[in-house]
Nucleic acid binder design. Structure first.
Lengths: 199, 199
DNA sequence: GTCTATAGATCGATAGAC
DNA sequence: GTCTATCGATCTATAGAC
């Protein structure tokens, strides 16, 4: 049988899903306790600050994950075109091809928008700026790069909202496809041929 | 002094703003009573079904407004290009140039998504299909028209989310500008010259 | 039609046994 | 570290005076 949750880091992914599906106001401690399998006592042992600390911790983990897996490669990878292509594939995987919502977007639209305003702003700005930097490094003029980056980050959120609202996850994949196809040719991966030496 | 609220139809716009800003779960009756200036007794007199009926009534009113002011013109106006141009201007005005959220999007992402799933789906589908019909009537091939309509409706939602998250309402206007510029030339209003006889 | 008072459930959070 | 019991606040909704 799987080891029962007994570390704070084990609880974070479960908490993230609860906030994603119920929002901050809708994620009651009863729901959280049920989903994590932990009693309220255990939850307050891990998160003395209560629900607010739980959500903040989840946002911290999400920030760190995106920074390591998407933003830093976009800014620093030796091959910016490859990093941009990887971004689209990672985005599709992370959001489960449109079946999973963006927690940061959910919080931005919910009634806890003020409480997490700084973190929400930082997440979107970091994504936009990292993508703009990758486009610029791939040869796109700076002004156009900033405009395209804003459009991509914006449209991704729209794709998630529309996929959920229309109950058609395919909307998200089509949105990603339109965005990737619209980028300057030089900033897209030149080929999909397998790289020598990699499986 | 303004007449105090005393009809159900007078309360709906106030209710809409409360649900927009707090979501369904976050809009407590205390907040609703404070914003509308009505006591709980009066609210239940107008809406015996409670909060759920309030939200449903607001959605009904929004549906009717969009149907009359945007969807029907898109489907039936004699000049489809003019209707498309009017849609962008109406959209910018309705969402206060990015300072106002879309209630349907808020509900789609919140924890009441199941309760209002049918209405949410119908709103987005009606907008997409009406725009696709206008594009088709303006000469765009049917498949491309459907694709463009999905992109526009999706990106509008993304623009609202990003404008709120980045605390930069200008994101929304730039999103609308990019979308309008991308439509086939024949489906856009041919000129912005003032119409004779109108002020 | 609008109000106050309040019921009954659920909320976030705490205390303390084990 | 995890649980149960419970507190006080807040929630939705109802009852009834005016």
């Amino acid at each position: 049988m799987p080891k029962t949750v007994s570390e704070r880091s084990d609880v974070l992914p479960l908490l993230a899903e609860v906030f994603r599906e119920h929002g901050f106001a809708g994620a009651s401690l009863a729901v959280i306790a049920g989903r994590t399998g932990l009693g309220k006592g255990s939850l307050y042992h891990f998160f003395p600050g209560g629900k607010a600390e739980m959500a903040a911790s989840v946002l911290d983990e999400i920030d760190a994950w995106f920074e390591a897996n998407m933003f830093r490669p976009l800014r620093e990878d030796a091959d910016p075109s490859a990093a941009i292509g990887a971004m689209f594939r990672t985005t599709d995987a992370y959001f489960r091809s449109g079946r999973r919502l963006c927690l940061v977007g959910v919080l931005a639209l919910g009634d806890a928008q003020d409480r997490f305003a700084e973190r929400i702003n930082a997440y979107f700005a970091a994504w936009r700026d990292a993508l703009a930097e990758a486009l610029r490094r791939a040869g796109t003029e700076a002004g156009l790069a900033g405009d395209l980056a804003e459009e991509v980050v914006t449209a991704i959120q729209g794709g998630l909202v529309a996929a959920r609202a229309l109950r058609d996850p395919g909307v998200f994949g089509r949105t990603l496809g339109r965005l990737e196809a619209r980028l300057p040719a030089g900033s897209r991966a030149p080929s999909r041929a397998a790289e020598p030496g990699s499986s």
